[in-house]
Amino acid sequence: MNIFRLAGDMTHLVSVLVLLLKIHTIKSCAGISLKTQELYALVFTTRYLDLFTDYISLYNTVMKLIFLGSSFSIVWYIRRHKIVRRSYDKDQDTFRHYFIVLPCLVLALLIHHKFTFKEVMWTFSLYLEAVAILPQLVLLQRTRNIDNLTGQYVFLLGAYRALYILNWIYRHYTEPHYVHWITWIAGIVQTLLYADFFYYYFQSWKNNVKLQLPA
């Protein structure tokens, strides 16, 4: 464990807790893409298949349970909660899951480290996580209203993967056999997807104006 990875995990943790807290307190999911949240639940499900088979550390297991629990809770709130579901904008959140899931699945079947079920699922979860934010970014551009918490949520989500890139660089230089080029490529693609959001986020923060994404 290094400081970059710990900072990355904490940033990721805060991002999902900010979202869960927002939905739980104001009982609204306005501006939140259910599609993205469902994709994240799928990311964690396919990535943490080793939850009960490989014990890494207490921290690792606890964090996996938190991420699984929070992502499924958020999906449950938006789908099932009698008040929250009313604020879900299903007419605008129309990104098709299979446009994202299928290419990632095909890619994972073609490019992976080992052709085993768990390894292909793990690779699939990496590719999926890289593009899972797309429905949310599309929704933000469509609705154009980005309330603070949603802006913070997307920002923290992008920041966590950027911190992970620093962690991969650090581990590459400190651990001789640390080679995870698939992880690195997926992580860089993921962070680049946030790049334009970051640009507009900082612009709005610097000029102290409401965050607006170009149509």
């Binding site: 990875r5 990721h12 080793d50 690792n60 080992k114 793990w122 992970y164 962690n167 056999h177 995870h180």
Partner: peptide
Amino acid sequence: DGESAKHDEL
């Protein structure tokens, strides 16, 4: 092989 059998990152 380069890929550690266990994925120790989240």
